[in-house]
Deep mutational scan, measured.
Amino acid sequence: KTVKFDGLQFDFDNPEKALKFALEVAKQKGAEVHIHGDEIKIE
C-alpha cells in the first residue's frame, strides 16, 4: 500500500501498518483518510 500526503509518498509492504500510519498522520493533521485500491490519501 502507498500512503500519500503533502506531496510525499510512503510505501508499505504491510497494509495494516500503512493504514495505522495514515490514521495517525490524519489525526495529527486534522485530515481525513481516503482509500483508493492500493493507495491511501490523507486530505
Score class of each variant (00 low, 15 high):
K1H: 11
K1C: 15
K1E: 01
K1W: 15
T2P: 03
T2F: 08
T2S: 08
T2L: 07
T2W: 09
T2N: 04
V3R: 01
V3I: 04
V3C: 06
V3G: 02
V3L: 04
V3A: 03
K4Y: 13
K4G: 04
K4D: 02
K4R: 11
K4I: 13
F5L: 05
F5G: 01
F5S: 00
F5R: 01
F5D: 00
F5I: 07
D6F: 11
D6I: 05
D6W: 13
D6K: 09
D6A: 10
G7F: 06
G7N: 07
G7A: 05
L8K: 11
L8M: 12
L8T: 05
L8S: 05
L8F: 10
L8P: 00
L8N: 05
Q9K: 11
F10N: 00
F10V: 05
F10Y: 10
F10C: 14
F10T: 00
F10A: 01
F10H: 00
F10P: 00
D11A: 12
D11M: 13
D11N: 12
D11V: 14
D11Q: 13
D11I: 14
D11L: 13
F12P: 00
F12A: 02
F12S: 02
F12D: 02
F12R: 02
F12Y: 01
F12Q: 01
F12K: 02
D13S: 08
D13I: 08
D13H: 05
D13T: 08
D13G: 04
D13A: 08
D13C: 14
D13M: 08
D13P: 06
N14D: 14
N14Q: 05
N14T: 13
N14S: 13
N14F: 04
N14R: 05
N14W: 02
P15Q: 09
P15W: 15
P15E: 12
P15G: 10
E16K: 07
E16C: 15
E16W: 13
E16T: 08
E16N: 06
E16I: 11
E16G: 06
E16V: 10
K17Q: 14
K17C: 15
K17G: 09
K17H: 12
A18D: 00
A18H: 00
A18F: 04
A18W: 10
A18L: 03
A18K: 01
A18Y: 05
A18I: 01
A18R: 00
L19E: 02
L19D: 01
L19H: 01
L19R: 05
L19Y: 11
L19M: 12
L19Q: 02
L19F: 09
L19A: 01
K20C: 15
K20V: 07
K20L: 12
K20T: 08
K20F: 08
F21A: 04
F21T: 03
F21N: 02
F21M: 03
F21Y: 08
F21I: 04
F21H: 03
A22I: 03
A22L: 05
A22M: 04
A22E: 02
A22T: 01
A22G: 01
A22P: 02
A22K: 02
L23W: 10
L23R: 08
L23V: 06
L23Q: 09
L23S: 05
L23M: 12
L23Y: 12
L23A: 07
L23P: 01
L23N: 06
E24I: 09
E24A: 12
E24P: 00
E24Q: 10
E24M: 12
E24F: 11
V25M: 12
V25L: 13
V25I: 13
V25Y: 10
V25R: 00
V25H: 01
V25K: 00
A26V: 01
A26D: 02
A26W: 03
A26Q: 01
A26N: 01
A26R: 01
K27L: 11
K27D: 05
K27N: 08
K27R: 12
K27E: 09
Q28T: 08
Q28W: 13
Q28H: 09
Q28P: 01
Q28D: 08
Q28K: 11
K29Q: 10
K29H: 13
K29N: 11
K29Y: 14
K29P: 03
K29A: 11
K29D: 05
K29I: 14
K29M: 14
G30K: 06
G30A: 06
G30E: 05
G30T: 03
G30D: 06
A31T: 07
A31D: 04
A31Y: 14
A31E: 04
A31S: 07
A31L: 14
A31W: 15
A31H: 08
A31M: 14
E32S: 13
E32A: 13
E32K: 14
E32G: 09
E32F: 14
E32I: 14
E32P: 05
V33Q: 00
V33K: 02
V33P: 02
V33C: 14
V33D: 03
V33F: 07
H34C: 15
H34K: 11
H34Y: 13
H34N: 06
H34V: 13
H34D: 04
H34W: 13
H34P: 01
H34R: 11
I35H: 06
I35N: 02
I35D: 04
I35F: 10
I35A: 04
H36G: 06
H36R: 10
H36N: 11
H36E: 12
H36P: 03
G37A: 07
G37T: 05
G37C: 14
G37V: 06
G37Y: 06
G37P: 06
D38E: 07
D38H: 10
D38N: 12
D38T: 11
D38P: 06
D38R: 09
D38A: 08
D38I: 08
E39V: 14
I40F: 07
I40T: 03
I40H: 03
I40Y: 09
I40P: 00
I40R: 01
I40L: 07
K41W: 15
K41C: 15
K41Q: 11
K41P: 00
K41T: 14
K41M: 14
K41R: 14
K41S: 13
I42L: 07
I42A: 02
I42P: 02
I42Y: 02
E43C: 15
E43R: 12
E43P: 05
E43T: 12
E43V: 14
